[in-house]
Write a protein that binds this DNA or RNA. Structure first.
Lengths: 112, 112
DNA sequence: GCCGGTTCGAATCCGGCCGTCCCGACATCG
DNA sequence: CGATGTCGGGACGGCCGGATTCGAACCGGC
């Protein structure tokens, strides 16, 4: 059952572009602008994107195209988000509770 | 006791600039970009800013210079904020409770 | 091993966002 | 009356955020 139809581990820049609707030069450009975006390269020097890399691309895309931050604004947001990842020090068990509670609170906040 | 040292009702563009550190031409420019910023004009056509107008200027200033949204991004945020002002339909009494609760929740959220 | 398609980095180009500058005119104050 | 502050409009400009172009290297399929 080692079929590779289950889930790919790595993606080429072309695949990421197809998935996100972005152009290769934009991905390369964003790499120069965001420390957070650092796909590995294979022996040939080609970018090799993990799912995590793609998530970051989409995150940046959202900040720039939907929220409409400037590049620097988006960087700021991502940096602050990185800080909050200190929360990762919290045990996974407790973590899930907190995430659920957080979702509830956010919904609640909107109503206030 | 009708001394006017208590609190001014209106401010000139120059005073607003002094208070905010912005230049007059920026304030005029922002007026063309934000529907939300509309100081009245006196008979002579001069802008006359209320405290509320100044608060809006500072709000915009914060979104652009600190949060670093694009003009369009800032507009978006302000528009969404306007929607939430429907909350004003809530009785003042209950309103204060909610604001207090909200402050608490926001602090709490940061910890999650 | 050759070919078409993909990717590479670097350099260059460019539209438009976000002001900035300049101007003559008018208001207000002392 | 001059000094100072403000007016709006139009021309100007820096630079942000890509877009284009380039020659070269690589890759899978045949």
């Amino acid at each position: 059952m080692h079929t590779d139809g289950i889930k790919k581990l790595y993606y080429s820049i072309g695949e990421v572009c197809e998935a996100t609707g972005l152009e290769p030069h934009v991905l390369r450009y964003w790499e120069t602008e965001f420390d957070q975006l650092h796909p590995r390269k294979n022996r040939a020097g080609r970018r090799v994107y993990t799912d995590e890399d793609i998530a970051m691309v989409e995150r940046i895309q959202h900040l720039l195209r939907v929220e409409k931050y400037t590049l620097e604004g988006a960087r700021q947001v991502l940096d602050r988000a990185a800080d909050e990842d200190e929360v990762k020090a919290v045990p996974a068990e407790r973590r899930r509770e907190l995430l659920a509670l957080r979702g509830f609170l956010q919904a609640l906040l909107k109503k206030l």
